[in-house]
Design a protein around this nucleic acid. Structure first.
Lengths: 232, 232
DNA sequence: CGCAGGTTTGATGTGTATCAAACAATGTGG
DNA sequence: CCACATTGTTTGATACACATCAAACCTGCG
């Protein structure tokens, strides 16, 4: 399936927004859209057949599995996010769909060529990369929080912000893209502790659960306060 | 003090290595070297007077302090590393010297101009940024390790690698750039636990302490093994 | 309906935080 | 040059939060 940038929901925010329409059209010929179902992996650690991609819709995780089989989630990727390591001969981490997702995939050679041809693209990717770095550090600060419920509250607040597409506003109701196990792998906790912390927050009146995945936040600001002040 | 790139110890590895000699000479006119003593801060969170810098020698930390006064270390910066947020109006984190350091500082406007003028510089910074991202994720994987002594062993191994300037080889003897408190802030532990884990590793024969800061590693490979397998 | 994967709840143990104090290393002023 | 303060480190005793082990409970789906 080839690309139709005109209707792309992330055309304003993705890295390719740095290109003019004709420039983008050239790049679009090289790209392909790809869909992933929840759980499907886009890249696996160790792969060398390098490609990269912009996420159009859905959500991805970047994860590493250590030898004892424990998965650690290192990053979440939201629409307009870019994944793929441009300067490494092989992938260091797994990239897996958290929800059914749609992406715009480019072979690495194509991106490198585009990078060389369009200076603006390099700057746009630099910007994205710096944003990713900032997100990564936010996540570190998040997982460094004191107690399990503080971590969870902070994560839920982040996810609520990501769910509402107006940045800086938290959605009052959203679906978790993560299972309990994935939340645990992200926060460095166990499934059981995540579950207990959820019921704790619910008992405190900070949220309501709608089935296993639905979350309602009567007052997002209180949740944020419960997480402790942001460390930035 | 103006720059003398010809004798710069990181001229091969820093971002500016992407420039030709004459190009670099132009940029060098805009830059200044600056020295910091241990504990001095280069940027403070909230600053808007943006600049950025390449570290020539020494070591820096990138840290955030949450409202209860706890410092969290989000990244370590080694020589040739680049610090400064190019696309943010203000600094999100503190950047502080861990040891006496020397840097090459540029005002943001100058870097932006250079970025626009030299496409190769944007690519070089993109590469650095992706490396930083990878380091950040490595650090996340590190702090997610099971026990305190595993985290510490992994960190010491990292630091031993950074100390020996031949990458992929760990130095057998080096000085910690971090105090116990800083190690604790990095690993998400307390000073006491760090201290205890150190004595534990020493009792296991994996290291010897030389004063408060010196570390000797009789067998770096055993230390790496003690850390558990790398999660990437 | 009935199965499988995921989630919640419970009982118990352990690793690390916390509180507290002694100890080294470093620098300062008399 | 030596008391002395200061900062950082080590060691000890105790408490608690989370991990672990175990079992019951939902939820979605063939």
């Amino acid at each position: 399936m080839s690309l139709d940038c005109a209707h792309c929901p992330v055309r304003e925010r993705a890295a390719c927004a740095a290109l003019s329409d004709p420039e983008r059209a050239v790049l679009a010929k090289a790209g392909r859209t790809r869909t992933l179902k929840r759980g499907e992996t886009l890249f696996a650690a160790g792969d060398d057949n390098q490609a990269c991609a912009t996420l159009i819709e859905g959500a991805l995780k970047v994860a590493a599995t250590d030898e004892d089989g424990t998965e650690h989630i290192l990053a979440l990727v939201h629409p307009a996010g870019f994944v793929g390591e441009l300067f490494s001969p092989f992938a260091h981490h797994d990239v897996v769909a958290l929800t059914d997702s749609r992406l715009c995939v480019f072979a690495r050679a194509e991106i490198e060529e585009a990078l060389a041809r369009h200076p603006a693209l390099a700057q746009a990717l630099l910007r994205r990369s710096q944003d990713d770095l900032h997100e990564s550090r936010k996540l570190m600060a998040l997982t460094a929080r004191r107690g399990a419920s503080e971590k969870l509250a902070a994560l839920l607040y982040e996810l609520a912000q990501a769910a509402s597409h107006s940045p800086c506003h938290a959605a009052q109701s959203f679906e978790l893209p993560l299972t309990r196990g994935e939340i645990a792998a992200l926060l460095g906790l166990t499934i059981e502790t995540v579950s207990r912390s959820l019921t704790l927050l619910e008992d405190e009146g900070l949220l309501r659960r709608n089935g296993a995945r639905g979350i309602d936040l009567p007052d997002p600001a209180r949740l944020e306060a419960r997480a402790g002040a942001p460390a930035y």
